Amino acid sequence: MPKTIYSFLILFLCFSCNSETVEPAATTTETIYFPPLTGTIWETKSIASLGWKQAAVQPLLDYLELKQSKGFIILVNGRIVMENYFNGHAASTNWYWASAGKTLTSTLTGIAQQEGILNINNKVSQYIGTGWTSETLAQENLITCKNLLTMTSGIEDIANGDDVSPSSLQYKADAAARWAYHNVYVKLQDVIAQASGQTWNTYFNTKLRDKIGMDGAWFQSGNNSVYGSTTRSMARFGLLMYNKGKWENNIILNETYFNEATTTSQNINLSYGYLWWLNGKASYHLPQSQLTIPGSIIPTAPNDMFMALGKNDQKIYVIPSKKMVVIRMGDAADNVNLALSDFDLTLWAKISALYQ
Rank of each mutant, 00 (worst) to 15 (best):
V226Q: 11
N303P: 12
S233Y: 09
V318Y: 00
S289T: 14
K323V: 06
I319K: 01
Y284P: 01
M214L: 03
P294C: 13
S271L: 03
N269H: 07
I251Q: 13
S289R: 13
P287L: 11
V336Q: 15
Y272N: 05
Y272S: 08
Q266H: 09
N224H: 15
G228W: 05
Y257S: 00
A217I: 14
S321H: 11
S265K: 11
G280F: 08
A282R: 14
I327A: 01
Q220Y: 10
R209Q: 04
Y242M: 11
S221N: 03
W218H: 12
K211F: 05
E260P: 08
L275K: 06
L338Q: 09
L340Y: 13
S221K: 05
G295R: 01
Y284S: 01
P287K: 11
D215V: 07
L286F: 09
N249T: 13
G280C: 09
T262F: 00
P299W: 02
E255H: 15
K311S: 15
S289H: 09
Y242T: 08
D215C: 02
E255N: 12
K207F: 02
G310Q: 02
N269P: 06
P302N: 10
Y284K: 03
S229G: 07
L309P: 02
H285V: 08
L291M: 15
L253S: 03
W276K: 01
S225A: 14
N250H: 15
K311E: 14
S229C: 08
G222W: 08
D331Y: 08
D334W: 14
L278A: 05
K281L: 09
D334C: 12
E260W: 13
G222I: 12
L309G: 04
L291I: 15
A261D: 03
D313N: 10
L340F: 10
Y227R: 11
I327Q: 00
K244S: 12
N223E: 14
Q266W: 01
I293L: 04
V325N: 01
R232Y: 00
I212M: 05
P320Q: 06
M329W: 12
I251S: 12
G330I: 06
S289N: 10
N337K: 14
F258Q: 04
M214E: 00
K315D: 05
K281A: 05
V318S: 00
R328C: 03
S341C: 08
R209S: 04
A282E: 13
H285C: 08
I212N: 05
N223W: 14
I319R: 06
K315H: 13
D313Y: 05
Y227C: 06
I212L: 04
M241N: 10
M307H: 10
N259S: 08
L253V: 05
Y284V: 02
V336A: 15
L286A: 09
N223P: 10
F258K: 08
L208K: 07
T256M: 10
Y317V: 09
L208V: 09
S225M: 13
T263C: 02
T263E: 03
I268P: 10
K211A: 06
Y284M: 00
